[in-house]
Amino acid sequence: MPDLVTHAAIGYLIRRPVEILRPSRDDASKRMLFFLGVILPDILSRPIYILLPGLHDWVVAFHTPAGLLAASGLLASRFEKPFRPTAFRFLVAGGLFHFLLDCFQKQVTGNNFWLFPFSYHDFGFSLFWAGDIVAFAPVWVGLAVLMEIGLRFGSRHRKAEICPPDKPSIS
């Protein structure tokens, strides 16, 4: 997997323009769920098998789309009822984006078991090693910050065009 800085920053670069182009109610909550989804497959599996390597095979499922659906369903079931479908959708969207980024990475052993539990076929494209892109993490963060500044500046500019300040009255 790429590191979580890369996952989160590229997720931000994808998610924020969508919010600007198609604003909806409670975008900030949806964004948080999307980001939680982006890191969910890794935070459910990596810490467990790094600290307790004997449990590796037990947590393989958490880094698969089936595991993501189940974990998102479990999390979403603990949200207020009207918000559950939204929570589920955004957690899953974030998680699927995670898998999309992961599949570009080279692995010695498989990691992209998209059809688990039906198959252990690895769907990786093997384009780069994880270690090769760690150095680019600050670039993605920098781009995300630049984009946020640009989006905020643009939105302020648009608001000013729609609602121009009152002209001073001539007395």
Binding site: D3, V5, A8, A9, M32, R46, A137
Partner: peptide, 12 residues
């Protein structure tokens, strides 16, 4: 990778 991944995980 493991160390820098802790930052966004904690932040999110």
């Amino acid at each position: 990778k493991m160390i820098i991944s802790l930052i966004p995980a904690a932040l999110i």
